[in-house]
Amino acid sequence: MFIDSDVTITQLLKTTGYTAACIGKWHLGWNWNSINMEPTGERTFWDKTQIAYLLEDLNWTKPVSGGPLDRGFDYYFGDGTINFPPYAWIENDKFVEAPNDFF
């Protein structure tokens, strides 16, 4: 997880006039709370049932924070997550389109 006080190489390079893009997966985390509403569903994970966010519990039109644009990059296109749902493409800080399923 990225700590706000951490500095990326891209942030340092920007101070000298560089422009940078990130293409691919972002492995430093996203702030999913920036698009969360209230969880309304239950899902079973590893034989345990727990409250979970469903697709309709998230506002897919809002920008998601914590990504490359917040860490010094000028442009981003890539996967919204590492190896877990929701599987969706993000351009800059917005979803290209909302995922149609979490699995």
Rank of each mutant, 00 (worst) to 15 (best):
M37R: 15
N31D: 15
P63N: 10
L12Y: 12
Y18M: 12
P39S: 08
W89P: 01
T81N: 10
F102C: 11
T61W: 00
F2D: 09
T10H: 04
L69A: 04
D79L: 15
G66K: 10
L12C: 08
I23R: 08
V64L: 03
P85L: 03
G17P: 01
W60Y: 10
I23V: 15
E91V: 14
T16L: 12
L69F: 09
T44S: 06
S34E: 00
Q11T: 02
M37F: 00
E91W: 10
T8R: 01
P99C: 08
P63E: 08
L55T: 02
G41R: 03
D101Y: 14
K25R: 11
N83H: 11
T44F: 01
L69Q: 04
G41K: 05
D93Y: 00
F2Q: 08
K94F: 05
L13M: 08
P99M: 06
V64P: 00
V7N: 07
T49P: 07
I23C: 14
I51T: 14
L12R: 14
A21V: 07
E91K: 13
A52Y: 03
T8D: 01
I51V: 13
Y87C: 03
L12M: 14
D4K: 14
N83M: 10
Y76M: 09
G78F: 14
D93L: 02
T40N: 13
T15W: 00
K94W: 00
I90A: 03
M1D: 12
W60G: 06
F73D: 01
W26H: 07
G29H: 07
Q50N: 05
F84K: 12
F2K: 11
R43I: 09
Q11Y: 08
P63D: 06
H27D: 08
T81A: 08
T44K: 06
L54E: 13
G78S: 09
R43E: 12
P39F: 04
G67Q: 00
G41N: 00
N36S: 12
A52L: 01
I23L: 15
W60R: 09
D79S: 15
R43H: 07
Y87N: 11
G29T: 02
F103Q: 15
E42N: 01
F73I: 09
F84E: 15
T49Y: 01
L12P: 00
D74L: 02
F102N: 13
I90C: 10
G67S: 05
D70T: 10
G29R: 06
W46G: 12
Y76P: 00
F77H: 13
A20D: 11
P68D: 01
N92W: 01
N31W: 00
F2Y: 13
R71C: 09
T15D: 11
I82E: 15
G17R: 02
I23E: 11
L12V: 15
N92Q: 06
I23W: 14
F77P: 02
A20M: 15
R71S: 06
A88F: 11
P85N: 09
D57V: 06
L69P: 07
E38S: 13
W32C: 00
F77V: 15
G24I: 09
W32I: 06
E97H: 13
S65A: 14
K25T: 14
T19M: 09
I35Q: 07
Y75M: 08
K62V: 05
T49S: 13
P63M: 03
V96R: 05
T8M: 05
K48Q: 11
P85F: 06
F77L: 15
